[in-house]
Design a protein around this nucleic acid. Sequence first.
DNA 1: CTGAAAGCGCTTACAG
DNA 2: CTGAAAGCGCTTACAG
Lengths: 339, 339
Amino acid sequence: MNLKEFASRLELSQTTVSRALSGYPEVKQATRERVLKAALEYGYRPNTSALGLATGRVGAIGIVLKGGGEFGPHTSEFMGGLGGRLQQEEIDILVSTVDSQEAELTTYRRLAASKRVDAVILHSPFLDDPRIALLNSLRLPFIVHGRTNYAGNFGWLDIDNFGAVRQATRHLIDIGHRRIALLNGYRGRIFAEHRQEGYHTALSERGIAIDPALTGNSEFTDEMGFRLMQGFLKLDRKPTAVVAGSMMSALGAMRAIRIAGMKVGEDISLIAHDDVFPYISPDHLVPTLSTTRSSIRAAGARIGEMVLELLQGTPAETLREVWPVELVIRNSTAAAKTS
Amino acid sequence: MNLKEFASRLELSQTTVSRALSGYPEVKQATRERVLKAALEYGYRPNTSALGLATGRVGAIGIVLKGGGEFGPHTSEFMGGLGGRLQQEEIDILVSTVDSQEAELTTYRRLAASKRVDAVILHSPFLDDPRIALLNSLRLPFIVHGRTNYAGNFGWLDIDNFGAVRQATRHLIDIGHRRIALLNGYRGRIFAEHRQEGYHTALSERGIAIDPALTGNSEFTDEMGFRLMQGFLKLDRKPTAVVAGSMMSALGAMRAIRIAGMKVGEDISLIAHDDVFPYISPDHLVPTLSTTRSSIRAAGARIGEMVLELLQGTPAETLREVWPVELVIRNSTAAAKTS
DNA sequence: CTGAAAGCGCTTACAG
DNA sequence: CTGAAAGCGCTTACAG
């Protein structure tokens, strides 16, 4: 059913019905109630395309994902939070899949030119990310999950990756560890750079030399955690503690440690970054896992809110947040054995 | 830039430009080339809302996800495949998040009434799923990932869950196991029912009694695999073999087995269903993991194709596929110890 | 408080 | 092979 038919059934003009539905003040209360009730009864809803054409708003937020690796658990959780918040305003998420960085840029051009979304979420930014400049030039509103060094005027939400890893590393040093490994993301991604800095800072503060052999850069997967940990354990001077980038990396690392005949929380201490997945809890691992905790789902929800604010006219430069990260000590960390 | 401006720059009518862009045959070859070249140059693309209004097609396929659990690794992989195929036609995925079954139904009504998507993908169907009847009554085209018992006229793609588990269970029996556990999904979901039947059939065929204590029904997560396996290991008559529903369940189960001081592939045999995640390979586990293999990403891609065919007029009843599942024996399965 | 009508940016039947 | 114009279903400035 379209507006014309719906309005005629109510014996009102399209104008009045439209205004009643959109909450405009100039409609008599009784009329509005009658319209809203009838809309529910007939299941009338404005055609999105017509609405988009008339208002310029299409009620969708875009996110571009690389088909290969980016459809992972982190993205899922993030989108769960984002979608949950947007759903309250009946705004949906439009997912575009691409297979290269180049295709991603092309997709932003397409989304902007065809006015397919009201805004986009940019994620996992690089140092000086070319996507930022492109989105600015396309005048496509966006919020960044993460930060960049690009000095543009845009909103973002990031967690304190630097502080999280610095805190974790410091704690390990405090309880006697000197050979501390880091399972990090790929260089070039801002969050990985911040973590690396946090790690280096903590070590330097205590006068501990940095050994490049104790850093691994890869995806945050079980498998890569396993492989990198196996590599660490083959070193002549093995680490006695590890800071892992995610729960997935930690699971793989724990497996490698066990297979090598060592015990987590005794022979090797482990702290992982916990994005708070509903299906893997650090409290249920054996031993329970010390973590730096920050809900990526909550970040998604907040970013959804920030996008809504942005679209309502809030200046982008006021939409910037750094979330602190909490260190939670459990049983996977213990004082270094005196050798 | 809109069509009017674009056409006037080319000194052509909107009609001709529109036809050239849409590949209509009545346009002179030279004209078409000039238009296509200019479109690329100016970055002109039709406004999606206008296009949707004029044609009734909006270039998006919907998928409704429950915010809680459904944003997981299986969905991610599936969407990676789906999106990859749809992207070739510049069709995007519209994700709607809901938090209840009731909200899911409401969302289909909203999507249909507002003509927000051209079709939807239905996933994880139940026995006699109410969503099927609703989508039919809404006349919203859809393809089901999975099957249902509902006798409606619709397209679907499913893997042979029955055959996969029957085959795995049979193999374990063949190598001497009699106490075989099953880590399955929740009852009521068709795929879980099919797996349960495959398991029961294999046991019955060989005259092995079914012990309900050896079946666990839950999500396919590391944590649930761990917990359910711990439960099995507490039984007086422990299983000597396990069929796990996913790689995630298997990882948790392996952990539980190790913690109990047993060895996978020696004390306990394990076969897992492998949806082929790029980040967890059964060949890299220790021991390598025997699996029933079927790429959920490939299924997503094929379903994308089926949706496109459906929208082009292919009758739904001809769009039905059951994919066979391959049993791959690796080192996690071994002959039962003679006790 | 309500309504008639222009306009959003396309496609396409119709005319040439 | 090309174009003028109606129509898709809304919103909203304007008039009353």
